[in-house]
Structures are given as structure tokens and as C-alpha cells.
């Protein structure tokens, strides 16, 4: 028997190479399809692998009549209607750790660049200017880093930030103060974290509670001149409130890899001088893409074969 897998978003070559080695799997790479086109072809497949671009809503999941597994090459599954998948017995799985290191590294890259004006300084030099006094930076050493969402990535960021002599504090409702303290991290209630942090970095998942948790009210509770880094999910931030805080100077700088809508056309944040933008590249190191690709195709193939169900995010009986 041959399982058919649709690769609906760009997947690392290493993952495709691994699929080529599997005798019982056939696959098609059809990226960038509109919903209409997907509705037409989905019924042919046993599994679909996406990253963050394809929106697998209830209609598409219903159309996939043979569909048994949805694989997300990455972590966040907010582009997948998990409830609809669960209702139709479709297993949803992700690769929670494969790109964590890349995400932690991007967090540090953005934090350092935002504090040292690296990108505007480079752009100013590229424009033939020599304006040193505009780019007086701020050091990480001795500052307090607040981590919201203290999971695997938060811990990887912690280890790196501590090497920069930062004090690390964390808020996560599912983590105990003891879990934090063994890593030299102080667990704080959200209000205390907001009040004490010089830099705040988000590593939470999107839930009804965390959606737009960075809003006018929480921004007002932060230190004046705070720096905000987000490589997690765009939906954690109310973009208009952040833009207002950036314009008023309440927030000194923001470094953002993710947005409410991607690409972030029309976002009030685009074009602000004190925002450092990257286009959702947090997970995109070559090494991480390599690992993510291999892990997701192996997980999906094993699930189709009924051999193993790894990193499943919804409660479906196999």
C-alpha cells in the first residue's frame, strides 16, 4: 500500500530526500495554492504537511475525505482548525523542538540588534552617512529580561541571556517557581514581570487568555523605555496599541519577527523608525529547516503506518 502525502508549503530538501527513500510513500509538492485549488486536490491525500502559510480551515479538513494526518513543520498550529480535525478523527502533529534553537538564536539576534541599532546604523552607512551619535546603544549586561511563556524556547533563551549577565525573570501560568529557580530564573506574576523588565520577550502559544496580551493596559504597566521582542506569534500583540506606545516613546524599541497578518500589509507597525522587522524567520536557519523537514516526514509516515504517534497535539484515538 502506498500513502499519498501533499506538501502544501515549502519544506526543506532534507525532508523531501527522506520521503524519496520511503518505498511506501508517494508525495506531491504543491505550494502556494489558493483554497479553491486545495479543495479540489485534498481528497486524494492521506496526509498533508504545512508550515505556517497554508490555512487549513474546517472546510478544507472536511474536504480531505481520506485525510488521517496533518503535519505542521514547526510549532504553532494556529493556521490549523484543530477542533475540526479532532471532530473528523484527523491527527494533528508538529515538531515542537526541531527549530527551538533557531528561534532562541533569532531572539538573541533581535535583542542585540534592537539595543545597538545595528540595522539602522548599517542602513545609514549604506546611504553614505556617518552618524555615530544617532546610534548610542544599550548593553544587555545587568538588565532584566522578562520571558513570557517559559517553555523549551524560553529556557534556551535563558541560558544565552544569562551568559550576557542578564537577570532573567519569567511568567508562565503552567510553570512553578521551583522549575524556574533551578535555572537561576525568578518566577514573577505578570504584573511584576511587566514592571521590572528592561526587555520583554514573548514565547507563549496563542490561547484565548494570551491573545493580544500585549495591549494598551499591559503596555502601560511596563517600564518606560522597555524593549519588546516577539518571535513567537503575531496574535499575542495588539499592533495598534504597540504602535502607539512606540510613537510615544513608552516602548523604546520593538523587534518583531511575526505579525497579526503575514505579510503584514497595512500593519501600523511597518515603517516606524524604532521597529526592527524580520519576515517570520525565527525558525528559518538552514540547520533548523533541515531538522524540521526530516522530523515531520518521519512522524507523518510513521503515523500513517500506525507505527508511532509522536508530537500529537489533539486527542484522536489512532
Amino acid at each position: 500500500m502506498t500513502y499519498k502525502i501533499l506538501i502544501a508549503d515549502k519544506l526543506g530538501q532534507a525532508g523531501l530526500d527522506r520521503l524519496d527513500q520511503m518505498a511506501d510513500v508517494a508525495y506531491d509538492v504543491r505550494t502556494g495554492l489558493a483554497k479553491d485549488a486545495l479543495l479540489v486536490i485534498l481528497p486524494d491525500y492521506d496526509a498533508v504537511i504545512v508550515r505556517s502559510d497554508t490555512q487549513l480551515d474546517a472546510d478544507l479538513i472536511a474536504a480531505g475525505t481520506r485525510l488521517k494526518v496533518i503535519g505542521r513543520a514547526g510549532i504553532g498550529v494556529d493556521n490549523i482548525d484543530v477542533a475540526a480535525a479532532t471532530a473528523r478523527g484527523v491527527q494533528v502533529m508538529n515538531t515542537p523542538h526541531a527549530n527551538s534553537v533557531a528561534t532562541a538564536e533569532q531572539t538573541m539576534a533581535l535583542m542585540l540588534a534592537a539595543n545597538r541599532h545595528t540595522v539602522p546604523a548599517h542602513n545609514s552607512v549604506a546611504a553614505g552617512q556617518w552618524e555615530r551619535s544617532k546610534f548610542v546603544g544599550t548593553e544587555l549586561a545587568g538588565k532584566t529580561l522578562g520571558i513570557i511563556g517559559f517553555g523549551y524556547i524560553g529556557r534556551l533563551v535563558t541560558r544565552r541571556a544569562q551568559a550576557f549577565d542578564m537577570r532573567v525573570v519569567a511568567f508562565d501560568p503552567f510553570v512553578t517557581a521551583e522549575d524556574c529557580s533551578v535555572l537561576g530564573v525568578e518566577w514573577l506574576a505578570l504584573a511584576d514581570l511587566l514592571a521590572q523588565s528592561d526587555i520583554i520577550t514573548l514565547h507563549a502559544v496563542v490561547t484565548p487568555e494570551s491573545k493580544e496580551m500585549i495591549n494598551a493596559e499591559t503596555l502601560a504597566a511596563m517600564k518606560d523605555g522597555v524593549v519588546i521582542v516577539n518571535v513567537a506569534r503575531g496574535k499575542l500583540i495588539n499592533e495598534q496599541a504597540l504602535a502607539d506606545a512606540l510613537n510615544s516613546g513608552k516602548v523604546r524599541a520593538a523587534a518583531l519577527d511575526v505579525y497579526q497578518a503575514e505579510p503584514p500589509v497595512g500593519s501600523p507597525l511597518i515603517g516606524l523608525p524604532n521597529v526592527l522587522h524580520t519576515p517570520h524567520l525565527g525558525a528559518s536557519s538552514r540547520e533548523a529547516q533541515h531538522r524540521v523537514g526530516i522530523e515531520i516526514v518521519e512522524q507523518v509516515a510513521d503515523a500513517l503506518r500506525g507505527l508511532a504517534f509522536r508530537n500529537v497535539v489533539n486527542p484522536v484515538k489512532a
Binding site: E105, A109, L112, A113, T118, H122, T278, S285
Partner: peptide
């Protein structure tokens, strides 16, 4: 810190991104 920042900026192609 700036050296690490530059190293990461090169690795992640920050100005071009």
C-alpha cells in the same frame, strides 16, 4: 555584545531580511 550581535546579524541576514 556588539560582536555577538554582528555575528547573529550575519548568520540571520538581519539588514537584508
Amino acid at each position: 555584545e556588539h560582536v555577538l550581535g554582528l555575528l547573529l546579524a550575519l548568520a540571520r541576514r538581519l539588514p537584508w531580511a
